[in-house]
Design a protein around this nucleic acid. Structure first.
Length: 230
DNA sequence: CCAGACGTTGTT
DNA sequence: GTCTGG
DNA sequence: CCAGACGTTGTT
DNA sequence: GTCTGG
């Protein structure tokens, strides 16, 4: 699956790799993006291919309360086109989530050991994602990072598609995010049919990291530093 | 007809 | 155990 | 995903 | 909103 990830590359790098239109945007490097936080996503709009900050955890339009978004941080690529929560977004509201790496946990002895997964070449990845919009109800009273929302505000949210793990990833976990090839970015955003299987076998590398990053408040470069071999 | 769910993950 | 917050 | 809370009362 | 279960 994918429950944490990083966005470290600069706005300039993301602009180039994702083929964005419009001006370059400044991005703060993020080493530990957790569900419910905002992250940069790429979408097509009237002005072309644009970067926006959306909340991670898809809230369907019909939801009366936003808490379902806490659980819809991933969507299975095998079924997202049919599921009521994702179907509309799958056909109408696709996005790319640029990422430099992601975390997976593996049970090792008694502990859940986090690993950091990134590309061998260091190039950013393009996760396949879906986005949705949700209208804050009249009787809101929302908590947490949505507490500042007013009734009828529109909250934009996203989810990351997952697929079966392949290659070295299988030794860590049985699911992984859908990583689009550079050629698949345009057709995915255009709503065309795209192969949503696993990435190339040799695309990724991975290492253990400190459980420091378990705490979502920790968001510095120390999160991705490799542990000494055990 | 209305009521209630609508999802993924991991773990058992 | 389960939910909320990050 | 993990971390941390999970409650009531009375008093300020 | 739309589908399933009763």
């Amino acid at each position: 699956m994918c429950g944490r990830f990083t966005q470290i590359s600069s706005g300039r790098e993301v602009h180039a790799v994702m083929g964005l239109d419009g001006p370059e945007v400044d991005l703060r490097p993020r080493y530990n993006i957790a569900p419910s936080q905002n992250a940069a996503v790429v979408r097509n709009d009237a002005g072309g291919r644009q970067l926006s900050m959306l909340r991670w955890g898809l809230i369907p339009t019909w939801a009366k309360k936003p808490d379902i978004g806490n659980r819809l941080i991933n969507a299975r690529a095998e079924t997202a086109a049919e599921k009521p929560s994702f179907r509309a977004a799958f056909s109408q509201r696709r996005c790319i989530v640029p990422a430099d790496g992601f975390y997976e946990w593996r049970r090792e002895c008694a502990v859940r050991q986090p690993w950091y997964v990134t590309t061998r070449g260091g190039e950013p990845m393009a996760f396949a994602g879906l986005w949705e919009h949700w209208r804050v109800p009249e009787v809101a009273g929302l908590q947490g990072s949505l507490a500042d929302c007013q009734p009828n505000d529109i909250v934009e949210t996203f989810t990351i598609l997952t697929t079966g793990a392949n290659g070295a990833m299988q030794s860590i976990h049985h699911r992984m995010p859908v990583i689009l090839s550079p050629e698949a970015i345009r057709p995915w955003l255009a709503g065309e049919e795209v192969e949503l299987g696993s990435a190339a076998e040799d695309l990724l590398m991975m290492h253990r990291v400190s459980r420091h990053m378990n705490n979502p408040r920790h968001d510095g470069p120390e999160c991705i530093v490799a542990l000494e071999a055990p």
